Amino acid sequence: MNSPKLLALRLLLSLLHCPFCLLVTVSSSKPQVEVHEHTDAVLTCEFRTEKDQNPRIEWKKKGKSVTFVYFNHKLAGSYAGRAKIEGATLTIHSVTQKDSGEYRCEVTAGEDHVNLGEATVTLSVLVPPHVPSCEVPNSVFVGSGLDLLCRDKLSVPPATYRWYKDNKALATTAGTPYSIDTSKGTLTLQSVSKTDEGMYRCESFNSVGAPKSCVAQQLHVIEYPWNLAIFISGTAALVTLLFFCCLCVCVCRRRGCCRKDQKTKSTKSFNPPPPPPPPIHSLKHYKQTHSFMI
């Protein structure tokens, strides 16, 4: 594949050897083509040669790698059944978003002094808005922050977004408690109140087709009940108390407070018990075997 620098060098050398020769020239009357999805795209390519009346024509598409569209007088790959060549102009039927990209028309005239010329055509396939995906939670507590999301990844050019509450378009002003990012489709409620409850839906639109909207979804705003608040505060207080007690025990053990008590208790527990009194029969025997005279 010839680079532009190599082509320019070959052109300069040919002009030096034959300054009055005609050169192969390739151009496009419409280098930027925009068409709607599922319509025909015409990529024009005009050429002029010096001598060769039957030059070789090729179309290639540039991407991560270069692929052939028209090669050796045949349409290649997926273009075989849905494209045609008239002269050097390429027509692609029923284009989709996958057909968007940069195409190159190359004309090779073997009998000419400068035998290669090329022209580039960029194809953009426009896609109307699709039904966006909307993320609206079923319920939220009063005072919470909340983001409502809306996405349409298929439209070309990229869609912009509009939010509705109870079928009324939301507009941001200096005093509104919410904000809308029209390019990302995000509706942000800084601190939810009871007045924010309602039916929410999002609409995506661009310059290609009619706007599309998702199905409206209900947002419920829940207030904290008093018994729940008391339960939460009581639980927090109990956890704090237990933590404080554990901390005190740990500090006491590190300072050795608990060890002294354990030594004292262990010392007392090991004192031997007093000896038991002698048996009664031993006392009787003692009295019988001894006598005292007065």
Rank of each mutant, 00 (worst) to 15 (best):
F71T: 10
H36R: 10
R255S: 02
V69Q: 03
Q218C: 06
H220N: 13
S94P: 02
A83H: 05
C105S: 12
K153W: 07
L13W: 02
V221H: 11
S179H: 09
H220D: 09
S28C: 04
L16K: 05
V107H: 06
A76P: 00
G63E: 06
P128R: 03
A8R: 05
G63Y: 02
D181Q: 03
E86C: 02
P275E: 14
I230H: 09
L11A: 15
L228H: 11
L11Y: 10
E50I: 02
V127S: 06
C257K: 10
T240P: 00
E34T: 11
H281V: 14
P55K: 01
L7C: 10
K61Y: 07
A119E: 03
E203G: 00
L7K: 07
I85Q: 13
S65T: 12
V251T: 12
G198D: 04
T108A: 05
P157E: 04
H73K: 11
K287T: 09
V208W: 01
H130L: 00
W226H: 14
P278S: 12
K153D: 15
V142Y: 05
L219D: 12
K64S: 10
T195Q: 13
R259T: 14
G198F: 01
K64L: 04
Y164C: 02
K60H: 03
S291M: 00
I230G: 01
Q262V: 11
P272K: 11
Y70N: 01
G110Q: 11
K165T: 05
S204K: 01
